[in-house]
Amino acid sequence: MRTPRALRPLTESLATVALGLVAGGLLIWAFGHSPVAAYRALAVGAFGTREDLLETLAFATPLMLTALTFAVGVRAGLFNIGAEGQMYLGAVGATFVAGMVPMPAGVHLAAATLAGMAAGALWALIPAVLKAWRGAHEVISTIMCNWIALHLSMYLAINFLAEPGRAERTVPALPTARYPVLSEESTLTAVLFVAVGFALVVYAYLWGTRAGYELRLAGENPDAARYAGVRPERVVVLSFVIGGLAAGLAGASQVIGRPPAWSLYATLGNVTTLGFDGIGVALVGRNHPVGGILAAVLFGALAQGGRLMEYEVGVLSELVRALNGIIVFAMAVPELWTLLRRRLAR
């Protein structure tokens, strides 16, 4: 392999994408559709026009953030699958500030965004503290926290944030707390730039600072981290806080950065599963913040392009979902396997 080392993960990921697409193509073919036509529709539907591209990016925005949550966890040697719950709380926090606390324009948007991030981070502290000082396994505690967050957020949304007469959702974000819509053609807002910016900041932090180095060291080799004087508790808390900030931002992005509702559904329907989807995105993105951005665009393309595939080629929506699954599987499994193998090897 002559590819430069830095590009190797990229080529490997592309190859697995191709593998997943081939397998998915066989499935489409087995159901009596033309894989070529289906994939053309997928590509055109995702990237064919400006508005499709923008919509693809709108779907990608929250995923790159929840992927970041998982990726930072993995980099620190933790399986933080709590993005889902942290994101719920982030959405609640953003909704509260955006919808119920009037502020001047400019300040309000920033405050709502920060409120969402802070809420996500605070929620992430629970499993972090349990892990760091009580040794509770983060997989178990984050799963439990996800459930608690679900019910807590629904409770808060229905009882304290509800819009009178609109029980299906909370009060909408005030106009001063909404990210500008980039184009009337799609639901993409400027929150995309915040998401990308945050991912890049995290990247710079992990690879460019002493604390980021220690965090990655703890994930790469916990014993070597002890040797290097890294306190494991601090790494746990730090990685959970960064992950919580990202997940909280993801939740906020769907409230103050996604028309037309500009609010949180009482069922949390406009945010549910984004956190779990982020795990797959992170795996495809090789647990790298920049890889996560690219992988999120790919997932966004599947979501948006699948629509045209369904519409034009008549591929059943269930099949579109299965196709997504296969591609995710093909892409995620090798990485997941390496992760597990390294964990078991210890």
Binding site: R258, A261, N270, A303, R307
Partner: peptide
């Protein structure tokens, strides 16, 4: 499939 699909659909 998700609430975010309404507008694009």
């Amino acid at each position: 499939k998700v609430e975010a699909d309404y507008v694009p659909n």
